[in-house]
Design a protein around this nucleic acid. Structure first.
Lengths: 293, 293
DNA sequence: GCTCCTCTGCGTACGGTGTACGTTGGTGTA
DNA sequence: TACACCAACGTACACCGTACGCAGAGGAGC
Protein backbone atom coordinates (compact mmCIF):
# COMPACT_ATOMS: atom_id res chain seq x y z
CA UNK A 1 0.00 0.00 0.00
CA UNK A 2 1.34 3.41 -0.92
CA UNK A 3 2.10 5.55 2.12
CA UNK A 4 -0.32 8.26 1.09
CA UNK A 5 -3.05 5.59 1.06
CA UNK A 6 -2.52 4.96 4.73
CA UNK A 7 -3.09 8.64 5.39
CA UNK A 8 -6.23 8.66 3.28
CA UNK A 9 -7.66 5.63 5.04
CA UNK A 10 -6.89 7.12 8.41
CA UNK A 11 -8.65 10.35 7.57
CA UNK A 12 -11.58 8.44 6.14
CA UNK A 13 -11.85 6.47 9.33
CA UNK A 14 -11.82 9.65 11.38
CA UNK A 15 -14.53 11.16 9.21
CA UNK A 16 -16.74 8.10 9.36
CA UNK A 17 -16.29 7.74 13.08
CA UNK A 18 -17.54 11.29 13.48
CA UNK A 19 -14.27 12.51 14.89
CA UNK A 20 -14.03 14.84 11.94
CA UNK A 21 -17.30 16.46 10.94
CA UNK A 22 -18.30 18.43 7.84
CA UNK A 23 -16.60 21.82 7.91
CA UNK A 24 -13.78 20.63 10.17
CA UNK A 25 -10.25 21.07 8.97
CA UNK A 26 -8.23 18.02 7.99
CA UNK A 27 -4.56 18.26 9.13
CA UNK A 28 -2.67 20.53 6.74
CA UNK A 29 -0.01 19.16 4.45
CA UNK A 30 2.71 20.46 6.71
CA UNK A 31 1.04 18.91 9.73
CA UNK A 32 0.85 15.54 7.96
CA UNK A 33 4.56 15.60 7.18
CA UNK A 34 5.31 15.89 10.87
CA UNK A 35 2.65 13.49 12.01
CA UNK A 36 3.50 10.69 9.58
CA UNK A 37 7.12 11.49 8.90
CA UNK A 38 6.51 11.79 5.17
CA UNK A 39 7.50 14.32 2.50
CA UNK A 40 5.17 17.16 1.72
CA UNK A 41 4.60 15.74 -1.75
CA UNK A 42 3.10 12.64 -0.15
CA UNK A 43 0.90 14.69 2.07
CA UNK A 44 -0.24 16.74 -0.92
CA UNK A 45 -1.01 13.52 -2.75
CA UNK A 46 -3.14 12.35 0.15
CA UNK A 47 -5.03 15.63 0.07
CA UNK A 48 -5.57 15.25 -3.65
CA UNK A 49 -6.89 11.72 -3.22
CA UNK A 50 -9.27 12.79 -0.49
CA UNK A 51 -10.51 15.54 -2.72
CA UNK A 52 -10.91 13.16 -5.65
CA UNK A 53 -13.01 10.86 -3.54
CA UNK A 54 -15.24 13.76 -2.60
CA UNK A 55 -14.43 13.43 1.06
CA UNK A 56 -12.88 16.87 1.39
CA UNK A 57 -12.81 20.25 -0.27
CA UNK A 58 -9.73 22.46 -0.55
CA UNK A 59 -10.29 26.05 0.41
CA UNK A 60 -7.30 28.21 -0.50
CA UNK A 61 -6.09 30.27 2.40
CA UNK A 62 -8.17 28.24 4.81
CA UNK A 63 -7.22 24.59 4.60
CA UNK A 64 -8.56 21.28 3.45
CA UNK A 65 -11.95 20.80 4.89
CA UNK A 66 -14.33 17.88 5.26
CA UNK A 67 -17.00 18.12 2.57
CA UNK A 68 -20.69 18.38 3.21
CA UNK A 69 -22.97 21.08 4.52
CA UNK A 70 -20.98 22.54 7.37
CA UNK A 71 -23.00 22.67 10.57
CA UNK A 72 -22.34 26.19 11.79
CA UNK A 73 -19.35 26.16 14.07
CA UNK A 74 -20.00 27.82 17.35
CA UNK A 75 -17.54 30.66 17.44
CA UNK A 76 -16.68 31.00 13.79
CA UNK A 77 -16.74 34.55 12.56
CA UNK A 78 -19.27 34.77 9.79
CA UNK A 79 -21.17 37.49 8.02
CA UNK A 80 -24.35 35.71 8.97
CA UNK A 81 -23.40 35.58 12.62
CA UNK A 82 -22.25 39.20 12.63
CA UNK A 83 -25.53 40.44 11.19
CA UNK A 84 -27.59 38.32 13.55
CA UNK A 85 -25.65 39.54 16.57
CA UNK A 86 -25.91 43.13 15.38
CA UNK A 87 -29.69 42.81 15.18
CA UNK A 88 -29.73 41.36 18.64
CA UNK A 89 -27.69 44.24 20.04
CA UNK A 90 -29.80 46.83 18.26
CA UNK A 91 -32.98 45.22 19.54
CA UNK A 92 -31.72 45.28 23.11
CA UNK A 93 -29.73 48.49 23.28
CA UNK A 94 -30.87 50.59 20.34
CA UNK A 95 -29.12 51.41 17.11
CA UNK A 96 -27.03 54.19 18.63
CA UNK A 97 -25.38 51.69 20.97
CA UNK A 98 -24.52 49.40 18.10
CA UNK A 99 -20.88 50.37 17.63
CA UNK A 100 -18.37 48.27 15.84
CA UNK A 101 -16.34 47.90 19.01
CA UNK A 102 -19.27 46.75 21.08
CA UNK A 103 -20.39 44.36 18.39
CA UNK A 104 -16.91 42.88 18.17
CA UNK A 105 -16.83 42.46 21.93
CA UNK A 106 -20.16 40.69 21.83
CA UNK A 107 -18.75 38.32 19.22
CA UNK A 108 -15.53 37.78 21.11
CA UNK A 109 -13.50 39.10 18.20
CA UNK A 110 -11.32 42.11 17.53
CA UNK A 111 -12.98 45.19 16.14
CA UNK A 112 -11.31 45.19 12.79
CA UNK A 113 -12.03 41.54 12.17
CA UNK A 114 -15.59 42.47 11.37
CA UNK A 115 -14.46 44.46 8.38
CA UNK A 116 -13.45 41.25 6.66
CA UNK A 117 -17.14 40.41 6.37
CA UNK A 118 -18.83 43.80 6.27
CA UNK A 119 -17.57 46.75 4.23
CA UNK A 120 -18.76 49.38 6.65
CA UNK A 121 -21.21 50.04 9.42
CA UNK A 122 -23.72 51.40 6.94
CA UNK A 123 -23.57 48.26 4.87
CA UNK A 124 -24.00 46.23 8.00
CA UNK A 125 -27.19 48.12 8.72
CA UNK A 126 -28.47 47.47 5.24
CA UNK A 127 -27.81 43.78 5.78
CA UNK A 128 -29.65 43.97 9.09
CA UNK A 129 -32.60 45.59 7.36
CA UNK A 130 -32.75 42.87 4.77
CA UNK A 131 -32.54 40.11 7.32
CA UNK A 132 -35.23 41.69 9.46
CA UNK A 133 -37.53 42.05 6.47
CA UNK A 134 -36.84 38.40 5.75
CA UNK A 135 -38.81 37.54 8.86
CA UNK A 136 -41.98 38.51 7.07
CA UNK A 137 -43.87 35.41 6.05
CA UNK A 138 -46.48 35.76 3.35
CA UNK A 139 -48.55 32.94 1.88
CA UNK A 140 -48.01 32.05 -1.72
CA UNK A 141 -51.59 32.77 -2.70
CA UNK A 142 -53.38 35.95 -1.70
CA UNK A 143 -56.27 35.16 0.59
CA UNK A 144 -59.71 36.54 -0.20
CA UNK A 145 -59.07 39.39 -2.57
CA UNK A 146 -56.77 42.37 -2.44
CA UNK A 147 -58.03 43.99 0.73
CA UNK A 148 -57.43 41.20 3.23
CA UNK A 149 -54.19 40.51 1.39
CA UNK A 150 -52.62 43.94 1.75
CA UNK A 151 -53.99 44.18 5.26
CA UNK A 152 -52.09 41.02 6.03
CA UNK A 153 -48.96 42.50 4.52
CA UNK A 154 -49.34 45.68 6.56
CA UNK A 155 -49.80 43.72 9.76
CA UNK A 156 -46.77 41.61 9.06
CA UNK A 157 -44.72 44.72 8.46
CA UNK A 158 -46.02 46.25 11.66
CA UNK A 159 -45.08 43.14 13.59
CA UNK A 160 -41.52 43.28 12.28
CA UNK A 161 -41.21 46.94 13.13
CA UNK A 162 -42.36 46.18 16.63
CA UNK A 163 -39.84 43.43 17.07
CA UNK A 164 -37.08 45.71 15.78
CA UNK A 165 -37.67 49.27 16.94
CA UNK A 166 -34.55 50.50 15.14
CA UNK A 167 -35.78 49.26 11.79
CA UNK A 168 -38.10 52.00 10.67
CA UNK A 169 -35.74 54.87 11.29
CA UNK A 170 -32.89 53.03 9.61
CA UNK A 171 -34.97 52.46 6.54
CA UNK A 172 -35.84 56.11 6.30
CA UNK A 173 -32.26 57.21 6.64
CA UNK A 174 -30.68 54.93 4.10
CA UNK A 175 -31.55 55.41 0.48
CA UNK A 176 -33.96 52.76 -0.72
CA UNK A 177 -31.21 50.20 -0.77
CA UNK A 178 -31.60 47.05 -2.72
CA UNK A 179 -32.88 44.77 -0.02
CA UNK A 180 -33.96 41.57 -1.73
CA UNK A 181 -36.50 40.85 0.96
CA UNK A 182 -37.90 44.34 0.53
CA UNK A 183 -38.39 43.73 -3.16
CA UNK A 184 -39.99 40.38 -2.42
CA UNK A 185 -42.46 42.13 -0.17
CA UNK A 186 -43.23 44.77 -2.77
CA UNK A 187 -43.71 42.18 -5.45
CA UNK A 188 -46.18 40.34 -3.27
CA UNK A 189 -48.24 43.46 -2.68
CA UNK A 190 -48.18 44.37 -6.36
CA UNK A 191 -49.52 40.93 -7.17
CA UNK A 192 -52.40 41.42 -4.73
CA UNK A 193 -54.15 43.54 -7.32
CA UNK A 194 -54.22 41.00 -10.11
CA UNK A 195 -57.76 40.98 -11.37
CA UNK A 196 -58.52 44.54 -10.35
CA UNK A 197 -58.38 47.38 -12.85
CA UNK A 198 -55.24 48.90 -11.40
CA UNK A 199 -52.27 49.28 -13.70
CA UNK A 200 -48.79 48.72 -12.43
CA UNK A 201 -48.01 52.33 -11.72
CA UNK A 202 -51.12 52.70 -9.61
CA UNK A 203 -50.30 49.55 -7.73
CA UNK A 204 -46.85 50.88 -7.07
CA UNK A 205 -48.27 54.02 -5.51
CA UNK A 206 -50.58 51.97 -3.36
CA UNK A 207 -47.72 49.82 -2.24
CA UNK A 208 -45.48 52.75 -1.40
CA UNK A 209 -48.17 54.67 0.41
CA UNK A 210 -49.16 51.70 2.49
CA UNK A 211 -45.61 50.88 3.45
CA UNK A 212 -44.84 54.52 4.15
CA UNK A 213 -47.77 54.71 6.49
CA UNK A 214 -46.74 51.65 8.46
CA UNK A 215 -43.16 52.79 8.66
CA UNK A 216 -44.28 56.26 9.68
CA UNK A 217 -46.22 54.96 12.64
CA UNK A 218 -43.36 52.64 13.51
CA UNK A 219 -41.04 55.61 13.68
CA UNK A 220 -42.53 56.31 17.06
CA UNK A 221 -41.37 52.94 18.33
CA UNK A 222 -37.67 53.55 18.79
CA UNK A 223 -37.86 56.71 20.90
CA UNK A 224 -40.42 54.97 23.06
CA UNK A 225 -38.15 52.00 23.60
CA UNK A 226 -35.12 54.17 24.16
CA UNK A 227 -36.84 56.30 26.72
CA UNK A 228 -37.86 53.24 28.64
CA UNK A 229 -34.28 51.99 28.53
CA UNK A 230 -32.79 55.27 29.59
CA UNK A 231 -35.09 56.48 32.27
CA UNK A 232 -36.74 53.23 33.21
CA UNK A 233 -40.05 55.00 32.92
CA UNK A 234 -42.98 53.73 30.93
CA UNK A 235 -44.45 55.95 28.29
CA UNK A 236 -47.23 57.00 30.61
CA UNK A 237 -44.97 57.89 33.50
CA UNK A 238 -42.82 59.97 31.23
CA UNK A 239 -45.86 61.82 30.00
CA UNK A 240 -46.62 62.71 33.59
CA UNK A 241 -43.23 64.27 34.14
CA UNK A 242 -43.74 66.41 31.08
CA UNK A 243 -47.25 67.33 32.13
CA UNK A 244 -46.27 70.54 33.90
CA UNK A 245 -44.44 71.92 30.89
CA UNK A 246 -47.31 70.82 28.74
CA UNK A 247 -50.04 72.50 30.74
CA UNK A 248 -47.94 75.62 30.94
CA UNK A 249 -47.70 75.87 27.18
CA UNK A 250 -51.36 75.05 26.81
CA UNK A 251 -52.45 77.68 29.28
CA UNK A 252 -50.50 80.50 27.75
CA UNK A 253 -51.81 79.69 24.28
CA UNK A 254 -55.42 79.00 25.12
CA UNK A 255 -55.62 75.55 23.59
CA UNK A 256 -59.06 74.51 24.70
CA UNK A 257 -59.30 71.20 22.89
CA UNK A 258 -55.95 70.02 24.05
CA UNK A 259 -56.67 71.07 27.57
CA UNK A 260 -59.91 69.18 27.68
CA UNK A 261 -58.23 66.12 26.23
CA UNK A 262 -55.55 65.95 28.88
CA UNK A 263 -58.10 66.49 31.60
CA UNK A 264 -60.19 63.61 30.39
CA UNK A 265 -57.10 61.46 30.09
CA UNK A 266 -56.18 60.09 26.70
CA UNK A 267 -54.60 56.70 26.44
CA UNK A 268 -52.46 57.16 23.42
CA UNK A 269 -50.87 54.03 22.05
CA UNK A 270 -49.01 53.41 18.85
CA UNK A 271 -50.91 50.19 18.40
CA UNK A 272 -54.21 52.01 18.39
CA UNK A 273 -52.84 54.64 16.04
CA UNK A 274 -51.82 51.88 13.69
CA UNK A 275 -55.21 50.21 13.83
CA UNK A 276 -57.09 53.44 13.27
CA UNK A 277 -54.87 54.60 10.45
CA UNK A 278 -54.84 51.25 8.72
CA UNK A 279 -58.62 51.09 8.70
CA UNK A 280 -58.91 54.60 7.17
CA UNK A 281 -56.20 53.85 4.65
CA UNK A 282 -57.87 50.67 3.50
CA UNK A 283 -61.21 52.43 3.23
CA UNK A 284 -59.65 55.12 1.09
CA UNK A 285 -57.95 52.58 -1.12
CA UNK A 286 -61.20 50.68 -1.51
CA UNK A 287 -62.86 53.72 -3.01
CA UNK A 288 -59.96 54.11 -5.38
CA UNK A 289 -60.01 50.48 -6.50
CA UNK A 290 -63.77 50.57 -6.98
CA UNK A 291 -63.50 53.66 -9.12
CA UNK A 292 -60.92 51.96 -11.30
CA UNK A 293 -62.70 48.64 -11.52
CA UNK B 1 -24.43 121.08 40.23
CA UNK B 2 -23.21 117.87 41.76
CA UNK B 3 -20.49 116.24 39.68
CA UNK B 4 -22.48 113.06 39.13
CA UNK B 5 -25.22 115.20 37.58
CA UNK B 6 -22.84 116.31 34.84
CA UNK B 7 -22.23 112.70 33.99
CA UNK B 8 -25.95 111.90 33.92
CA UNK B 9 -26.69 114.85 31.65
CA UNK B 10 -23.87 113.90 29.31
CA UNK B 11 -25.14 110.31 29.00
CA UNK B 12 -28.69 111.59 28.49
CA UNK B 13 -27.46 113.82 25.67
CA UNK B 14 -25.68 110.92 24.02
CA UNK B 15 -28.80 108.77 24.26
CA UNK B 16 -31.08 111.46 22.88
CA UNK B 17 -28.70 112.27 20.04
CA UNK B 18 -28.82 108.62 19.05
CA UNK B 19 -25.14 108.09 19.74
CA UNK B 20 -26.18 105.49 22.30
CA UNK B 21 -29.06 103.29 21.26
CA UNK B 22 -31.22 100.83 23.21
CA UNK B 23 -29.21 97.82 24.16
CA UNK B 24 -25.88 99.65 23.93
CA UNK B 25 -23.66 99.64 26.97
CA UNK B 26 -23.15 102.86 28.88
CA UNK B 27 -19.54 103.32 30.09
CA UNK B 28 -18.94 101.18 33.15
CA UNK B 29 -18.34 102.69 36.56
CA UNK B 30 -14.63 102.08 36.28
CA UNK B 31 -14.55 103.64 32.84
CA UNK B 32 -16.31 106.72 34.17
CA UNK B 33 -13.75 107.19 36.94
CA UNK B 34 -11.02 107.38 34.37
CA UNK B 35 -12.96 109.47 31.87
CA UNK B 36 -14.19 112.11 34.34
CA UNK B 37 -11.50 111.85 36.99
CA UNK B 38 -14.03 111.04 39.70
CA UNK B 39 -14.27 108.48 42.47
CA UNK B 40 -16.05 105.20 41.85
CA UNK B 41 -18.75 106.17 44.32
CA UNK B 42 -19.62 109.15 42.13
CA UNK B 43 -19.75 107.01 39.04
CA UNK B 44 -21.98 104.52 40.81
CA UNK B 45 -24.24 107.36 41.88
CA UNK B 46 -24.53 108.46 38.26
CA UNK B 47 -25.48 104.95 37.26
CA UNK B 48 -28.09 104.83 39.99
CA UNK B 49 -29.57 108.13 38.87
CA UNK B 50 -29.73 107.01 35.26
CA UNK B 51 -31.47 103.85 36.37
CA UNK B 52 -33.90 105.80 38.53
CA UNK B 53 -34.83 107.97 35.58
CA UNK B 54 -35.56 104.87 33.53
CA UNK B 55 -32.91 105.70 30.98
CA UNK B 56 -30.85 102.61 31.63
CA UNK B 57 -31.07 99.11 33.03
CA UNK B 58 -28.35 97.40 35.06
CA UNK B 59 -27.58 93.90 34.00
CA UNK B 60 -25.34 92.15 36.52
CA UNK B 61 -22.25 90.72 34.96
CA UNK B 62 -22.95 92.49 31.73
CA UNK B 63 -23.03 96.20 32.35
CA UNK B 64 -25.38 99.15 32.44
CA UNK B 65 -27.37 99.22 29.29
CA UNK B 66 -29.61 101.77 27.58
CA UNK B 67 -33.24 100.84 28.21
CA UNK B 68 -35.78 100.05 25.53
CA UNK B 69 -36.35 97.19 23.19
CA UNK B 70 -32.90 96.32 21.93
CA UNK B 71 -32.73 96.18 18.16
CA UNK B 72 -30.84 92.98 17.47
CA UNK B 73 -27.15 93.67 17.27
CA UNK B 74 -25.50 92.19 14.25
CA UNK B 75 -22.96 89.77 15.63
CA UNK B 76 -24.28 89.30 19.09
CA UNK B 77 -24.41 85.69 20.16
CA UNK B 78 -27.99 84.79 20.85
CA UNK B 79 -30.02 81.67 21.23
CA UNK B 80 -32.27 82.92 18.48
CA UNK B 81 -29.36 83.50 16.15
CA UNK B 82 -27.78 80.15 16.96
CA UNK B 83 -30.98 78.25 16.18
CA UNK B 84 -31.55 80.14 12.95
CA UNK B 85 -28.01 79.52 11.76
CA UNK B 86 -28.27 75.87 12.72
CA UNK B 87 -31.38 75.50 10.58
CA UNK B 88 -29.60 77.17 7.73
CA UNK B 89 -26.65 74.81 7.97
CA UNK B 90 -28.90 71.75 8.24
CA UNK B 91 -30.88 72.87 5.20
CA UNK B 92 -27.77 73.29 3.13
CA UNK B 93 -25.51 70.49 4.36
CA UNK B 94 -27.81 68.04 6.12
CA UNK B 95 -28.22 67.29 9.79
CA UNK B 96 -25.18 65.05 9.96
CA UNK B 97 -22.97 67.97 8.97
CA UNK B 98 -24.41 70.14 11.68
CA UNK B 99 -21.69 69.78 14.27
CA UNK B 100 -21.17 72.14 17.13
CA UNK B 101 -17.77 73.12 15.78
CA UNK B 102 -19.05 73.90 12.32
CA UNK B 103 -21.96 75.85 13.70
CA UNK B 104 -19.64 77.87 15.90
CA UNK B 105 -17.40 78.59 12.93
CA UNK B 106 -20.41 79.73 10.94
CA UNK B 107 -21.29 82.10 13.76
CA UNK B 108 -17.75 83.36 14.15
CA UNK B 109 -17.65 82.16 17.74
CA UNK B 110 -15.79 79.53 19.72
CA UNK B 111 -17.35 76.12 19.99
CA UNK B 112 -18.02 76.18 23.67
CA UNK B 113 -19.64 79.59 23.57
CA UNK B 114 -22.73 77.99 22.12
CA UNK B 115 -23.26 76.02 25.29
CA UNK B 116 -24.10 79.23 27.10
CA UNK B 117 -27.31 79.36 25.11
CA UNK B 118 -28.06 75.76 24.31
CA UNK B 119 -27.77 72.91 26.82
CA UNK B 120 -26.79 70.30 24.29
CA UNK B 121 -26.92 69.43 20.64
CA UNK B 122 -30.12 67.48 21.15
CA UNK B 123 -31.82 70.44 22.75
CA UNK B 124 -30.64 72.58 19.89
CA UNK B 125 -32.34 70.23 17.48
CA UNK B 126 -35.55 70.38 19.45
CA UNK B 127 -35.39 74.17 19.24
CA UNK B 128 -34.82 73.90 15.50
CA UNK B 129 -37.87 71.69 15.16
CA UNK B 130 -40.03 74.14 17.00
CA UNK B 131 -38.82 77.07 14.97
CA UNK B 132 -39.34 75.21 11.71
CA UNK B 133 -42.88 74.24 12.70
CA UNK B 134 -43.42 77.89 13.49
CA UNK B 135 -43.22 78.62 9.79
CA UNK B 136 -46.59 76.97 9.31
CA UNK B 137 -49.22 79.61 8.79
CA UNK B 138 -52.84 78.68 9.31
CA UNK B 139 -55.85 80.99 9.09
CA UNK B 140 -57.75 81.74 12.26
CA UNK B 141 -60.98 80.31 10.86
CA UNK B 142 -61.20 76.94 9.19
CA UNK B 143 -62.22 77.35 5.56
CA UNK B 144 -65.07 75.32 4.13
CA UNK B 145 -65.51 72.48 6.58
CA UNK B 146 -63.13 69.97 8.04
CA UNK B 147 -61.90 68.35 4.86
CA UNK B 148 -60.40 71.35 3.09
CA UNK B 149 -59.14 72.49 6.47
CA UNK B 150 -57.10 69.43 7.34
CA UNK B 151 -55.99 69.17 3.74
CA UNK B 152 -54.60 72.65 4.10
CA UNK B 153 -52.82 71.66 7.29
CA UNK B 154 -51.33 68.60 5.62
CA UNK B 155 -50.09 70.66 2.68
CA UNK B 156 -48.53 73.23 4.95
CA UNK B 157 -46.76 70.49 6.85
CA UNK B 158 -45.57 68.97 3.62
CA UNK B 159 -44.21 72.31 2.49
CA UNK B 160 -42.24 72.74 5.69
CA UNK B 161 -40.81 69.23 5.41
CA UNK B 162 -39.72 70.03 1.89
CA UNK B 163 -37.98 73.20 2.94
CA UNK B 164 -36.23 71.37 5.75
CA UNK B 165 -35.35 67.86 4.66
CA UNK B 166 -33.79 67.10 8.04
CA UNK B 167 -36.99 67.85 9.90
CA UNK B 168 -38.98 64.66 9.54
CA UNK B 169 -36.24 62.30 10.60
CA UNK B 170 -35.35 64.50 13.57
CA UNK B 171 -38.94 64.48 14.72
CA UNK B 172 -39.08 60.73 14.58
CA UNK B 173 -35.91 60.31 16.54
CA UNK B 174 -36.65 62.64 19.41
CA UNK B 175 -39.42 61.77 21.76
CA UNK B 176 -42.53 63.85 21.14
CA UNK B 177 -40.88 66.84 22.69
CA UNK B 178 -42.93 69.74 23.84
CA UNK B 179 -42.69 71.93 20.79
CA UNK B 180 -45.15 74.78 21.34
CA UNK B 181 -45.60 75.22 17.64
CA UNK B 182 -46.34 71.53 17.28
CA UNK B 183 -49.06 71.80 19.88
CA UNK B 184 -50.44 74.87 18.15
CA UNK B 185 -50.69 72.87 14.96
CA UNK B 186 -52.40 69.97 16.68
CA UNK B 187 -54.87 72.27 18.37
CA UNK B 188 -55.79 73.79 15.03
CA UNK B 189 -56.47 70.39 13.49
CA UNK B 190 -58.49 69.28 16.50
CA UNK B 191 -60.64 72.36 16.12
CA UNK B 192 -61.30 71.54 12.47
CA UNK B 193 -63.84 68.99 13.56
CA UNK B 194 -66.05 71.28 15.60
CA UNK B 195 -69.56 70.59 14.43
CA UNK B 196 -68.90 67.02 13.38
CA UNK B 197 -69.80 64.09 15.59
CA UNK B 198 -66.22 63.25 16.46
CA UNK B 199 -65.23 63.24 20.09
CA UNK B 200 -61.86 64.49 21.19
CA UNK B 201 -60.19 61.13 21.30
CA UNK B 202 -61.25 60.35 17.76
CA UNK B 203 -60.02 63.73 16.58
CA UNK B 204 -56.71 63.07 18.23
CA UNK B 205 -56.32 59.83 16.32
CA UNK B 206 -57.16 61.58 13.09
CA UNK B 207 -54.65 64.27 13.81
CA UNK B 208 -51.88 61.84 14.68
CA UNK B 209 -52.54 59.59 11.73
CA UNK B 210 -52.57 62.46 9.30
CA UNK B 211 -49.37 63.96 10.65
CA UNK B 212 -47.71 60.57 10.77
CA UNK B 213 -48.54 60.01 7.14
CA UNK B 214 -47.08 63.33 6.02
CA UNK B 215 -43.97 62.85 8.11
CA UNK B 216 -43.62 59.32 6.81
CA UNK B 217 -43.56 60.44 3.22
CA UNK B 218 -41.23 63.28 4.13
CA UNK B 219 -38.79 60.79 5.57
CA UNK B 220 -37.77 60.08 2.02
CA UNK B 221 -36.72 63.66 1.51
CA UNK B 222 -33.46 63.75 3.43
CA UNK B 223 -31.78 60.75 1.82
CA UNK B 224 -32.78 62.14 -1.54
CA UNK B 225 -31.22 65.49 -0.79
CA UNK B 226 -28.14 63.94 0.74
CA UNK B 227 -27.54 61.69 -2.22
CA UNK B 228 -27.73 64.64 -4.55
CA UNK B 229 -25.23 66.51 -2.37
CA UNK B 230 -22.85 63.61 -2.11
CA UNK B 231 -22.78 62.13 -5.53
CA UNK B 232 -24.09 65.03 -7.54
CA UNK B 233 -26.52 62.63 -9.11
CA UNK B 234 -30.21 63.19 -9.37
CA UNK B 235 -32.52 60.55 -8.03
CA UNK B 236 -33.08 59.16 -11.49
CA UNK B 237 -29.41 58.90 -12.35
CA UNK B 238 -28.73 57.09 -9.13
CA UNK B 239 -31.49 54.64 -9.89
CA UNK B 240 -29.74 53.87 -13.13
CA UNK B 241 -26.50 52.98 -11.39
CA UNK B 242 -28.38 50.55 -9.17
CA UNK B 243 -30.29 49.10 -12.09
CA UNK B 244 -27.90 46.23 -12.68
CA UNK B 245 -28.07 45.04 -9.07
CA UNK B 246 -31.79 45.49 -9.19
CA UNK B 247 -32.41 43.47 -12.32
CA UNK B 248 -30.14 40.78 -10.99
CA UNK B 249 -32.19 40.37 -7.86
CA UNK B 250 -35.39 40.53 -9.84
CA UNK B 251 -34.29 37.89 -12.27
CA UNK B 252 -33.21 35.37 -9.68
CA UNK B 253 -36.48 35.76 -7.80
CA UNK B 254 -38.90 35.84 -10.71
CA UNK B 255 -40.58 39.12 -9.85
CA UNK B 256 -42.71 39.61 -12.87
CA UNK B 257 -44.61 42.71 -11.78
CA UNK B 258 -41.49 44.52 -10.73
CA UNK B 259 -39.73 43.56 -13.89
CA UNK B 260 -42.50 44.84 -16.09
CA UNK B 261 -42.61 48.06 -14.13
CA UNK B 262 -38.95 48.87 -14.58
CA UNK B 263 -39.18 48.02 -18.25
CA UNK B 264 -42.04 50.45 -18.76
CA UNK B 265 -40.21 53.07 -16.77
CA UNK B 266 -41.82 54.39 -13.64
CA UNK B 267 -41.37 58.00 -12.67
CA UNK B 268 -41.46 57.77 -8.98
CA UNK B 269 -41.62 61.05 -7.11
CA UNK B 270 -42.23 61.82 -3.49
CA UNK B 271 -44.56 64.61 -4.50
CA UNK B 272 -46.80 62.23 -6.38
CA UNK B 273 -46.70 59.76 -3.52
CA UNK B 274 -47.80 62.52 -1.20
CA UNK B 275 -50.67 63.54 -3.47
CA UNK B 276 -51.87 60.01 -3.99
CA UNK B 277 -51.66 59.09 -0.34
CA UNK B 278 -53.28 62.28 0.86
CA UNK B 279 -56.27 61.76 -1.42
CA UNK B 280 -56.78 58.18 -0.18
CA UNK B 281 -56.33 59.21 3.42
CA UNK B 282 -58.89 61.99 3.14
CA UNK B 283 -61.33 59.65 1.44
CA UNK B 284 -60.93 57.15 4.22
CA UNK B 285 -61.41 59.81 6.87
CA UNK B 286 -64.51 61.06 5.09
CA UNK B 287 -66.16 57.70 5.45
CA UNK B 288 -65.29 57.68 9.12
CA UNK B 289 -66.65 61.17 9.77
CA UNK B 290 -69.85 60.37 7.87
CA UNK B 291 -70.36 57.24 9.91
CA UNK B 292 -70.00 59.23 13.12
CA UNK B 293 -72.11 62.17 12.01
C1' DG C 1 12.22 22.17 -0.24
C1' DC C 2 11.12 26.43 -1.99
C1' DT C 3 8.42 30.27 -3.63
C1' DC C 4 4.21 32.48 -4.33
C1' DC C 5 -0.32 33.83 -3.52
C1' DT C 6 -4.55 33.81 -0.68
C1' DC C 7 -7.13 34.31 3.36
C1' DT C 8 -8.18 35.33 8.37
C1' DG C 9 -7.48 37.91 12.25
C1' DC C 10 -6.07 41.87 14.28
C1' DG C 11 -3.19 46.18 16.35
C1' DT C 12 -2.28 50.87 15.69
C1' DA C 13 -3.41 55.28 14.49
C1' DC C 14 -6.02 59.15 12.46
C1' DG C 15 -9.42 62.49 12.18
C1' DG C 16 -13.66 63.34 13.71
C1' DT C 17 -17.53 63.90 17.48
C1' DG C 18 -20.12 66.01 21.88
C1' DT C 19 -19.16 68.22 25.92
C1' DA C 20 -17.14 68.63 31.14
C1' DC C 21 -14.30 71.62 33.39
C1' DG C 22 -11.67 75.52 34.53
C1' DT C 23 -9.73 80.10 33.26
C1' DT C 24 -9.91 84.94 31.93
C1' DG C 25 -11.42 89.51 32.06
C1' DG C 26 -14.97 92.24 32.43
C1' DT C 27 -19.35 93.78 35.32
C1' DG C 28 -22.40 95.95 39.26
C1' DT C 29 -22.82 96.06 44.25
C1' DA C 30 -21.98 96.12 49.28
C1' DT D 1 -11.63 96.51 48.44
C1' DA D 2 -13.97 92.24 48.30
C1' DC D 3 -17.51 89.69 46.27
C1' DA D 4 -20.65 87.29 43.19
C1' DC D 5 -21.83 87.12 38.62
C1' DC D 6 -21.47 86.37 33.66
C1' DA D 7 -19.95 85.82 28.62
C1' DA D 8 -16.51 83.79 26.12
C1' DC D 9 -13.44 80.45 25.41
C1' DG D 10 -9.26 76.77 25.43
C1' DT D 11 -8.07 72.33 26.74
C1' DA D 12 -8.93 67.68 27.44
C1' DC D 13 -11.49 63.36 27.52
C1' DA D 14 -13.87 59.43 25.95
C1' DC D 15 -15.65 57.50 22.07
C1' DC D 16 -16.60 56.85 17.23
C1' DG D 17 -15.73 54.65 12.22
C1' DT D 18 -12.25 52.86 9.71
C1' DA D 19 -7.56 53.06 6.62
C1' DC D 20 -3.51 50.67 6.62
C1' DG D 21 -0.52 47.15 7.10
C1' DC D 22 1.35 43.09 9.51
C1' DA D 23 1.57 38.13 11.06
C1' DG D 24 0.62 33.58 10.43
C1' DA D 25 -1.39 29.57 8.42
C1' DG D 26 -2.84 27.35 4.34
C1' DG D 27 -2.67 25.23 -0.64
C1' DA D 28 -0.49 25.08 -5.31
C1' DG D 29 3.10 24.58 -8.28
C1' DC D 30 7.84 24.13 -9.54
Amino acid sequence: MHPYRRIVEDVRRRIESGELRPGDRVPSARALTKEWGVAIATATRAHAALRDEGLTVARPGVGTVVAGPAPRREHELTRERIVATAIDVADRLGLAELTMRRLAAELGAATMSLYRYVPSRDDLIVAMIDKALGEIRLPRRHPGGWRPAIELAARQEWAVFQRHPWLSSSMSITRPQIAPNGLRLSEWVLACFDGTGLDLEERMYVQIVLFTFVRGVANGLEPEAEAVRETGLTNEQWMDTQATTLTEVMDTNRMSHFQQLTEEGFDFGLDLVFEFGLARMLDGLSLFVQARG
